Simulated scan of single mutants.
Amino acid sequence: MIPFVDLKTQLKALRPEIDEVISRVIDQGHFVLGPAVSAFEEKFSTYCRTDHCVGVNSGASALHLALLAAGVGPGDEVITVSMTFVATVAAVLYCGAKPVFVDVDPDRWTMAPELIEAAITPRTKAILPVHLHGLMADMDPIMAVARRHGIVLVEDAAQSHGAEYKGRRAGSIGDIGCFSFYPGKNLGGFGEGGAVVTRDAGLARTVRLLRDWGQEEKYRHVLPGYNYRMDAIQGAILNLKMDYIEGWTEDRRRLAQVYDQELAAIGQKRPSAPSDTRHVYHVYSIEHPRRDALQAALTTAGIGTGIHYPVPVHLQPAYENLGYGRGDLPVTEALAERFLSLPMYPELAPDQVVQVCRELERAHAAEQIEPASRAPSARETNKVLESV
């Protein structure tokens, strides 16, 4: 059996150090924010190559506060994508704003820059690209549009700790960046956690106020804020794990190279990683037109898999009031039906990756499943839809 995710092996390796930092927090008796969180914020800010980091209690909270600090409010619009976890869109709605979706690029799987300009209206306040699976969106053209129109750019980097675009780290290119430290992330805590990073001191100050009831000092509330504070134990664990994240990231990248080589031999479409990027492979996802049959075959063979994400946000029942329907985002919808995420974590052995790929090859042969090329473009998918 090869599990899709294995958190226990990492815990076992770090257990003595983790027990020590947790004991230190307990002995200090400072359980919310405090020195442990401050130490992590400083280390993570340096890692992201930004000037400020504000630890919060989840990635969703990071997105919510980043948008609020950027001035997003009722009546505003935020351009984003539907190929993401629902938290991206929920955070926009928390602000009273309206999410406006654009489709994704069929090869990169992130926001298609050429579609943004047509989505801009006088109400557009922010652009919110998502760095999917550990690969950053094509930021230069996205930033160019944002700057040309005077629009704030917020990076959803929840899956992309340490990813790079033309030598710049995730979270450091836009006005403000948001991270999640959910346990399964490349940098994961022992529960929920998140952070906002920025080079803008004013934005950082506003986020710090908002996360702690809007307090400038104890019992002096200058903004209507939230209880989005990071626990000290989470800060301590994340601070410890920062010493290992680069090694874990390079392990993921080496495993991805094994996947790339093995899957190329059977003609299977692999994730796109342009030469000017550093893909950190939070997820290693392939495309396949018979994804469900392939997943069932791998499950039978003892290979754990996942799907990120089977139903795009604009087709979720909870968000049907946004006014989108099937066919509105054809590339996103095609990818949602084709994505299959394979095992990927630093403790995975290269020979296990080879085993996964051998089982994929057997599934292709046994089920007469042809290897996939790529998701069709919006134009190609529209032609299919028109013929139905």
Rank of each mutant, 00 (worst) to 15 (best):
Y182L: 09
Q234Y: 07
A13P: 06
D328V: 09
A195M: 05
K166M: 08
L348W: 04
A349Y: 06
V86T: 14
A334S: 12
E246Q: 11
V196C: 01
G247V: 14
R278T: 12
E320M: 12
S180I: 05
T299G: 10
L14Q: 15
A256P: 03
R168C: 07
S341I: 12
I245T: 11
L385R: 04
V56P: 02
L187V: 13
R24A: 13
H64S: 09
P274H: 00
S61A: 15
D19Q: 10
I151T: 09
D175M: 04
G167M: 01
P224H: 03
P350M: 00
V104Q: 01
Y94H: 14
E337R: 15
K241D: 09
M136V: 09
Y284T: 12
P74H: 08
V222N: 01
M1G: 13
H133Q: 15
H308P: 04
W248Y: 11
I173V: 15
M143E: 15
M83R: 13
A36V: 12
Y259Q: 06
L33I: 09
Y284G: 12
R291H: 07
L210N: 04
N57E: 13
W109L: 14
E386D: 13
S23W: 05
R358H: 14
A363K: 00
E333S: 04
V102E: 03
S61T: 15
G55T: 10
A157Q: 07
G202F: 10
I173P: 02
V356W: 00
D175Y: 06
T198I: 03
L340Q: 04
F44N: 01
A119Y: 04
R148M: 09
D103K: 00
V196D: 05
E337L: 13
R252T: 10
A144F: 05
G184C: 10
D156G: 05
V102S: 02
A112D: 14
L240R: 02
V331I: 04
E246A: 13
L335S: 08
V331W: 00
L14H: 11
A265S: 12
D140H: 06
F179W: 06
S373N: 10
A378I: 07
E380Y: 06
I127Q: 02
N57L: 10
V32Y: 05
T206N: 08
Y94C: 13
L14G: 09
Y319G: 05
M143Y: 11
D140M: 06
A170V: 11
A195Y: 04
Q355A: 15
G162Q: 03
K43D: 09
R290A: 11
M83F: 13
L187H: 05
H149Q: 08
A232T: 09
T88Q: 08
V25C: 01
G323P: 01
A195H: 04
S180L: 01
H133D: 15
A375G: 07
A296L: 09
K43Y: 03
A112Y: 08
D19S: 10
V145L: 00
A170I: 12
D103I: 05
Y324C: 03
D107W: 09
G167N: 01
E347P: 02
K218P: 11
Y219E: 13
Q28H: 09
E367M: 08
T84A: 14
R211W: 04
A97I: 07
K383Y: 13
A301E: 10
S38G: 08
A126R: 01
S58N: 06
K98F: 06
S387L: 12
L135R: 12
G96Y: 03
D27C: 09
